[in-house]
Design a protein around this nucleic acid. Structure first.
Length: 302
DNA sequence: AATCGCCACAACCGCCATACA
DNA sequence: CTGTATGGCGGTTGTGGCGAT
């Protein structure tokens, strides 16, 4: 036995809503609220399915909705969150006041997806993202260097404290320096982003979390787009996962909400992010970069 | 002026989770 | 505990506007 339809298909109107219908629905909801969508169309004098009414209200009629174009900041937020939570449009929309999941979904499908697959056109996005990311990374790296030096000074040789336990001091320094170098180059060259270069080309070397040679997708030639994992998992550009990840980019309130999301989805993120574990992209790991305990940054397996 | 194709947005569909009797 | 109703979500489709030919 199949599922019972939410309403009788014969007696319900479908298709575009008229201004009259909008008025009926709006005025009814303003008086009675949205307690029972099944009853709303009946009581409001609408020949519509309750589900259709709910959609119309939540996606269009709600007074707190924005109807204009998406701002750059909103776009960055979408890109950033999409790279983390995927097509969880309601989650993403929850971070954008006045925007609905449908809005976000449509905007992604019609604009952002294309933008992200056309790198020269999104140089500014990449640049903005790198700006945010650079600040965050340099902050963390600076802190990490200090922590590490302190740790080296205090911890006797051979003892293992914390999760970060490389054996070779030069390797650690090299990692940090490589990341810094890559970031600097990326920033410098973000205006000169090269034409799209497929990542399956042989010189698109795999990044790895040990990161001694390829801390940045750009390898030695500067920022390159998209990164090695591009094309996996619904064409999510993983470089964007590092967009504006820290305090430098998102507002305090949103930042908190974002952290909630990340905490809420931490398990599935780490579950879904298998590429991250096999080192496909260093940037995939920033699901833990977000609110990371600093030690985790340098821990290859998080 | 007519037609075609593309784009953006609105709406629908089906599935899933949860509340509730 | 179980079955059903309902709300919510993501994917997909429909439709109108607009520019190119």
């Amino acid at each position: 036995m199949g599922r019972i339809p939410c309403c009788e298909k014969e007696n319900v109107k479908r298709g575009q809503w008229t201004p009259e219908e909008d008025n009926k629905l709006s005025s009814y909801i303003s008086q009675h609220g949205t307690r029972n969508w099944r009853l709303i169309p009946k009581n409001a004098g609408l020949q519509r399915c309750g589900k259709s009414c709910r959609l119309r209200w939540t996606n269009y009629l709600r007074p707190d909705l924005k109807h204009g174009q998406f701002s750059d900041m909103e776009e960055q937020t979408i890109v950033k969150l999409h790279s983390v939570v995927g097509n969880r449009w309601s989650l993403i929309a929850a971070q954008l006041p006045g925007r609905t999941d449908n809005d976000v979904k449509n905007h992604w499908n019609t604009k952002l997806k294309k933008k992200l697959s056309a790198p020269p056109q999104v140089a500014h996005l990449a640049e903005a993202a790198l700006g945010c990311f650079k600040d965050e990374m340099l902050h963390l790296l600076t802190k990490k260097c200090v922590d590490f030096q302190l740790q080296q000074a205090n911890v006797p040789p051979g003892s293992s404290s914390g999760t970060y336990n490389h054996n070779n001091q030069n390797e650690k320094d090299g990692t940090v320096e490589n990341i810094k170098l890559g970031l600097s180059r990326a920033i410098q060259q973000s205006d000169l982003i090269t034409p799209y270069k497929p990542w399956n080309s042989t010189d698109a070397t795999t990044t790895n979390l040990e990161g001694t040679s390829n801390c940045f997708p750009a390898s030695t030639s500067g920022f390159q787009y998209p990164p090695p994992s591009f094309g996996n998992e619904g064409d999510v550009p993983s470089w964007s996962q590092s967009m504006c990840t820290g305090s430098t980019c998102t507002g305090g309130e949103q930042q908190g909400q974002l952290h909630e999301i990340l905490e809420e989805h931490g398990e599935e993120l780490s579950e879904g992010g298998k590429e991250m574990r096999n080192g496909t992209s260093i940037f995939s790991s920033d699901s833990v970069l977000w609110d990371l305990p600093c030690d985790d940054l340098m821990n290859p397996i998080v």
